[in-house]
Amino acid sequence: MKGISVRLEGLTKHFGKVVALQALDLDIRAGEMVAFLGPSGCGKTTTLLMIAGIYQSTAGQIYFNERRVDHLHPRDRDVGMVFQSYALYPHLILFENIAFPLRLKRTPQAEIEQKVRQAADLLGIGHVLDRRPAQVSGGQQQRAALARALIKEPQVLLLDEPLSNLDAQIRLQARGEIRRLQQQIGVTSILVTHDQAEALAMADRIAVFSMGKLQQLATTDDLYLRPANVFVARFVGHPPMNLLEGGFENGHFTMGTLSIPVPSGHLKGGGSLGIRPEDATLDGEVPARVVVIEPLGRETLVTLRLGEMDFKVLADQAARPTLGTEVRLGYRRDRVHLFDQAGKRVAP
């Protein structure tokens, strides 16, 4: 692994009175790909730009391995970055775009030729190197931007929504390619995205952001199976988790007239109970009425009316109920998520 570790300590950013990022502590291991996931305005891009050195942090430190870098100019940090708009230089042909970082380092011409050709061939854009950005497809622009970011063999690769401007089909392909390339080179990478499928598919670990705060840093599995709080529970997973708000008492969760036994009997007071649509079934004990049926091909998404709220169940195609009928809602006992009043995960 030639990658380095990245450590953020109490990283904070204010824009005037707006707090864009609040005291972020984060450890990214060498060679790892971490995704920053969250809705727009959650602080993920701000964090990335501070790591790149484009924004000055208001407080806190950034370390690459043990070297403190937050006071350094971007060019002294040795990072490569891919932007959402690709940000290629429109007046230069792709070859010169990719060669630019090397030219700034005064690399000999022969070495530039060789490296650019190699990178371009690796990314399959060798045949369009003499064209300008406007004359190639979005996918090719994206690859050129990636080649430009990688050509100087950076210690850290930063990807800011690199796929959002691509067509759905090319996006899937590019997703796999970037991941394969990253693992091959072993460069420590940070991917900023608002698309959870992208984050889940590409990253080793995912940092979920909201309102300028890190909500959870975990592997895909952990994020899905053990969300740290209500926000993560709702944000990760599709269709989103059902969250019932009510109270805990005597080993039961109660909401209105509804009472459901829960595994952790010691809980008391207000809170919420989360059940993912795929962990719910239509052969349990809780009565509910079918209000919407959405066939999804392999499965069927059934929306039930449960007391005052809607509850989504991902059912087998074969078990599709009839609209308007009464069904019996069930769930996997070992897969319920319990959160306290403040929204923090308490069990299991």
């Binding site: 060019r75 970055m81 940000a87 230089y89 970082p101």
Partner: peptide, 15 residues
Amino acid sequence: LSWEMEMAALVDGMS
């Protein structure tokens, strides 16, 4: 001019 392009230029190593 796009801001992202200038950011890219800074990251690429330009003053």
